[in-house]
């Protein structure tokens, strides 16, 4: 879907981004991960040409973005900027409606869409529609920023630390909600973050950057179990595997099997806690239950590989 070929940005004598080659697959969420100042924002902004590269090119569905008018390109790509950047003179609804307006969508549809999106990011439309950005908390503003990027239903979303200003609880909720939206709508998302947990939790693939260059590109599993360098290992930390489990539900790992005599865990419990229960109980398998009924069993060995999609479909309670 989006392909970076030898992408480079140079400021004076120093490189902000250097020889970056990456393919972001359609419908996947890729995290751009790395320490502060490693060039994540620069990379993201070169994709929608807010920054013009000094070398290399960006292909969008095989087409060089350089052949497109920047405005046209940007209107088809949702963008959540790091500083939120709501328009202070417009209210929440008007902020969210900006891109549909630019695209000339009918006002009535847009109005409905605005309410839908506000609901989606957990802000009650009735209460927040007419508030001005100055009346919002940092986290609320950030959610409006996410809604605004989604408003025109773009197939591609670029997000620069979209959940940075939220408290851990709200962040977890919004992250879950967002992952569901993304899975359901099959958006291609590139999300900048320096939060490892966030990347492990949300991303299908992670591009780990260091000092402007790509350190490793792969699934969270690849990075954890097959780190390409010491930097990757150190950046993720020795407990990366555990942190990865913390971001998944026990149900994601469950397989059909006989639950008889096994300690039970709830399907919504995170996998790390499930592992803790195995250690405590001295068991090497657990029965996974949902609403009292067994939906499968979870073995010790199942936890060693993270499934991309849950093998067993479960009823979704988090939205």
């Amino acid at each position: 879907m989006i392909e970076l070929q030898g992408l480079e940005k140079r400021y004076g004598d120093s490189f902000a981004v250097r020889d970056l080659n990456l393919v972001f697959a359609e419908g996947e969420l890729t995290a751009l991960l790395g320490p502060s100042g490693c060039g994540k924002t620069t990379t993201l902004r070169m994709i929608n040409r807010l920054i013009e590269p000094t070398g290399g090119r960006v292909l969008l569905r095989g087409q060089d973005t350089h052949t497109l008018k920047p405005e046209t390109l940007r209107r088809g790509i949702g963008y959540v900027i790091q500083q939120i950047g709501l328009f202070p003179h417009l209210n929440v609804a008007q902020n969210v409606a900006t891109v549909p307006d630019l695209l000339g969508r009918p006002a009535r549809d847009t109005e409905r869409r605005v309410d839908e999106l506000l609901d989606l990011v957990g802000l009650s439309p009735a209460e927040y529609r007419f508030k001005k950005p100055a009346e919002l908390s940092g986290g609320q503003a950030q959610r409006v920023g996410v809604a605004r990027a989604l408003a025109a239903d773009p197939p591609v979303l670029l997000m620069d630390e979209p959940f940075g200003a939220l408290d851990p609880l709200a962040r977890d909720k919004l992250q879950d909600a967002f992952r569901d939206i993304q899975r359901r709508l099959k958006k291609t998302v590139i999300m900048v973050t320096h939060d490892i947990d966030e990347a492990l939790r949300l991303a299908d693939r992670i591009a780990l950057m260091n000092a402007g260059e790509l350190a490793q590109f792969g699934t969270p599993d690849d990075l954890i179990h097959r780190p390409a360098s010491d930097f990757v290992r150190q950046f993720l930390g020795e407990d990366a595997a555990l942190r990865q489990l913390a971001g998944r539900r026990a149900a994601d790992f469950a397989h059909p099997g006989d639950p008889a005599g096994l300690p039970t865990v709830d399907a919504q419990l995170d996998a790390r806690s499930a592992l803790g229960i195995m250690l405590r109980e001295g068991a090497d398998a657990l029965a996974v239950t949902q609403a009292g009924e067994s939906i499968g069993i979870l073995r010790w060995s199942d936890l060693q590989t993270i499934p991309m999609q849950p093998p067993i479909s479960i009823r979704d309670e988090v939205t």
Binding site: Q5, G6, E8, D19, N21, G55, G56, R57, D64
Partner: peptide, 14 residues
């Protein structure tokens, strides 16, 4: 806006 010089994938960079 300055145009980037397309160097192609893995092109020689100075």
């Amino acid at each position: 806006m300055s145009k980037p010089t397309p160097t192609g994938a893995g092109g020689n960079r100075p």
